[in-house]
């Protein structure tokens, strides 16, 4: 309803304004009024009345259209967390299980501050949009990635939604790689992903011994935060509970591909001059198997 009410109210306001200014007999005013009406109709047509424009990329639009949004303060979230409840963000949305809300530990909260200070959100978004190509891209193996949900963000202050993907989306990064992979990658990204243009965050390491850099507190906090990203997101799985269905973490254990242990608290370090990325123990990048497609019907 609001979609229609707000612009109509707006048009009425403009009309009143025009009357007050006594500019209605002015030719330019009439043209402008016509322009307002025409652009409104064009915008409405493109966005709402021609759904096929959106079907091309979108997973679904009908369900989302009924969403409303409530304002949550941190105190509300904390109360819901104490009570073990999840605040209903969807109208009439009572049968959606999401898992218990998990706030950040002190270390993870510190990691968020490092993430913020280093500006990770300028190159990495934290939202999977409900688009087919995007779901296919960020799925791993047979684990189909769930799209972004409002409730995932309620602990975030500041938010790290992001507007740019110079690097890939990170909202499902938790659990995908080992801590050691992340340390090696932060120390020198190009030894893990050939061609990466990510900065090397060497100041997060004590590298007085260049052959054996050791992550400092900032790096450990940062990685502990990165490992929470999307880690608690659950999806419905029909095969659980003997065919009755149930909820499980979205990333299946067998799809956590990059868990090779490099060494406790150590960083794999290869001289960038002689290394073109092939020398690394683990190749990064979003490796997708050919079977990794959106299932028919696009259900999650």
């Amino acid at each position: 309803m609001l979609v229609f009410v707000i612009p109509i109210l707006f048009l009425v306001l403009v009309g009143i304004l025009l009357l007050i200014l006594k500019q209605v007999p002015e030719k330019s005013a009439i043209l402008t009024g016509l322009g307002i009406g025409m652009t409104f109709i064009i915008g409405l047509t493109f966005t709402m009345l021609i759904p096929s424009f959106n079907e091309n990329w979108s997973q679904n639009t009908a369900k989302d259209a009924s969403r409303y949004h409530a304002i949550y303060l941190r105190s509300d979230v904390e109360k819901a967390d104490r009570d073990g409840t999840v605040p209903p963000l969807y109208k009439g949305d009572t049968n959606v299980e999401f898992g218990k809300l998990v706030g950040y530990t002190a270390q993870q909260e510190r990691g968020r501050r490092v993430y913020q200070r280093e500006g990770c959100m300028y190159c990495h978004s934290q939202q999977i949009r409900p688009l087919k190509g995007e779901i296919a891209r960020y799925s791993i193996g047979t684990s189909v990635v769930p799209v972004a949900d409002e409730r995932e963000y309620i602990w975030d202050q500041p938010h790290f939604l992001g507007t740019r993907r110079i690097g890939p989306d990170l909202s499902r990064e938790g659990g995908k790689y080992s801590d050691d992979w992340h340390y090696s990658h932060f120390y020198y990204p190009r030894q893990m992903v050939n061609g990466s243009i990510m900065p090397a965050f060497t100041w997060l390491f004590d590298d007085t011994d260049k052959s054996n850099p050791v992550p400092n507190k900032d790096a450990r906090d940062l990685v502990s935060y990165v490992q929470t990203l999307g880690f608690y997101r659950k999806v419905y799985d029909q095969s659980l509970n003997g065919g009755k269905g149930g909820w499980r973490p979205w990333l299946k254990p067998q799809d956590q591909q990059y868990t090779q242990n490099i060494g406790e608290g150590q960083v794999l370090r290869i001289d960038p001059k002689i290394n073109d990325g092939k020398g690394a123990l683990i190749r990064g990048g979003d490796q997708l198997s050919p079977t990794n497609k959106v299932p028919p019907g696009g259900t999650l």
Partner: peptide, 12 residues
């Protein structure tokens, strides 16, 4: 003022 701040998407 975290106690009464906007969280998550409100912040966005």
């Amino acid at each position: 003022f975290p106690a009464n701040s906007f969280m998550g998407l409100n912040d966005a």
